[in-house]
């Protein structure tokens, strides 16, 4: 009976971890000016495992990605692919599922090894609604420079 309890607890934890993932990413791409550029980027992104759909817009300068369930993609991997195509990956609008935690008076959420720290310029009404535990949120990830890709981001939540 004790073993069964442990298995149940471990299953819940692993299920919770597995569900922490990116759901949707609208990635801003600078420097992309031509149809073959968009074609190459779209093809490169499609090669990544864990995508449900990809659409690249030259006029918007964006790659719109919908991610499959149980994907292990990260924003860093997506931005790396953009960079490999010779462009600059900048800001992104991200929708994600994960476990919201509060530590040292700061909210953050971890997804596939990446940490999204909740930005202090998130609207107060949204900040007031935050509580520890599972959450699905949408937010703005600012990235002014892409020279150093990293796994820590600041996210300004726009929707929960």
């Amino acid at each position: 009976m004790k073993k069964l309890g442990i298995i149940v607890v471990l299953s819940i934890i692993s299920f919770s971890t597995a569900m922490a993932q990116l759901v949707k990413v609208d990635q801003e791409v600078f420097g992309m000016d031509c149809a073959p550029c968009a074609y190459g980027l779209e093809r490169g992104l499609k090669k990544m495992d864990g995508l449900q759909s990809v659409k690249v817009s030259l006029n918007d300068g964006k790659a719109y990605l919908k991610l499959a369930a149980d994907n292990d993609l990260t924003l860093q991997k997506i931005q790396k692919e953009v960079k490999n195509n010779g462009f600059s990956a900048r800001n992104a609008v991200v929708t994600l599922n994960g476990e919201l935690v509060k530590k040292d008076n700061e909210w953050s959420i971890s997804v596939n090894g990446e940490t999204f720290k909740i930005s202090s310029d998130t609207p107060d009404d949204i900040l007031a609604k935050l509580k520890s535990g599972r959450i699905k949120l949408k937010g703005w990830v600012e990235d002014k420079e892409d020279d150093e890709l990293n796994s820590k981001w600041n996210i300004r939540i726009t929707e929960i």
Binding site: V29, F30, G31, M32, D33, D60, G61, S88
Partner: peptide, 13 residues
């Protein structure tokens, strides 16, 4: 060798 690149806007570099 593209030794310098500055993509500074949508479609611009």
């Amino acid at each position: 060798y593209r030794f310098f690149s500055n993509a500074f806007g949508v479609g611009k570099r």
